[in-house]
Design a protein around this nucleic acid. Structure first.
Lengths: 148, 148
DNA sequence: CTGCATGCAAATAGTTTGCATGACG
DNA sequence: CGTCATGCAAACTATTTGCATGCAG
């Protein structure tokens, strides 16, 4: 498990190396993204950044998120109903558990996923470069509530 | 493997039972969806239906697709770049292999997925009702081409 | 200084909605 | 015949783009 400070430094170095400029807006956006594990919407990131930087525009958030996505530092999660969320907390792709009821998103990590990757590579000849694994269901809390 | 004709009849019966009307537009849309395994875009479905039914509107396609989705007869696949595709060919959820290069989508079927479902239920207490498993990579053809 | 980044506003794409007309049951 | 579905156009939402100004390098 790599610490947040290290991750922050690493991303900034990567930006520098690839010729991108280090602006206070970008620093703020990165800080929010890597410290927020709630899988926020772009709108939510925007609002968080605005508390530090009241003049920030949504366009800047979109542009920065796109840049970080290209760099592989974050992934987008589509909720199926059109709305998207951002996951910049965990750098590697991993499954998400999405509660259909309260919309909570939980990061999952199961060994078994590797077996699926391997099987697909083997059976279909695809060279797998990434995946988006979203499982929908009811979280423990919502299962309890709906039983009331 | 259930035949297309049976599937067609089954969907229509389901519509009738749930009080939906059987209109020629809906029949045409259903016919296209269950016979097209290319995971078409809404736009593409629209164009196919229009050859039978020139006055059809996009809105009707959207409404019908939404209805069938609610009934569990099809699923939507998000390509990550904002655009969506429809899979009405296979009724049960299954993983998709999406080629990043030619955008082709292949249905996959691997036993290993069940193990992931089970592991998640067990480890995180989620009651899994469905999943969307999209694997991105290069299909065999595009791997060859890009090596040229 | 030079050019990339920002931020505003306008443009765009995909999808949804309101409503009058038409057709299924 | 009453009601739901259709189809058109307008509305909406999320995202993107163009461009003048600002700031990092």
């Amino acid at each position: 498990m790599i610490g947040q400070t290290e991750r922050y430094e690493a991303i900034i170095n990567k930006l520098r190396n690839e010729g991108f400029r280090i602006t206070p807006q970008r620093l703020s956006i990165i800080k929010v993204l890597i410290s927020d594990n709630s899988h926020p919407s772009i709108e939510r990131v925007y609002n968080q950044v605005k508390t530090d930087f009241p003049t920030t525009s949504l366009a800047t958030i979109y542009k920065t998120v796109a840049m970080l996505k290209d760099m592989g530092e974050l992934m987008e999660i589509s909720l199926g109903d059109g709305s998207n969320r951002v996951d910049g907390y965990t750098p590697d792709t991993h499954p998400h558990l999405i509660c259909s009821h309260c919309k909570k998103i939980v990061d999952a990590d199961v060994e078994e996923v590797k077996a699926v990757d391997l099987a697909l590579t083997h059976t279909y000849g695809f060279k797998i470069t990434g995946h988006r694994l979203d499982f929908f269901g009811l979280c423990p809390e919502c299962q309890t509530i709906s039983k009331n």
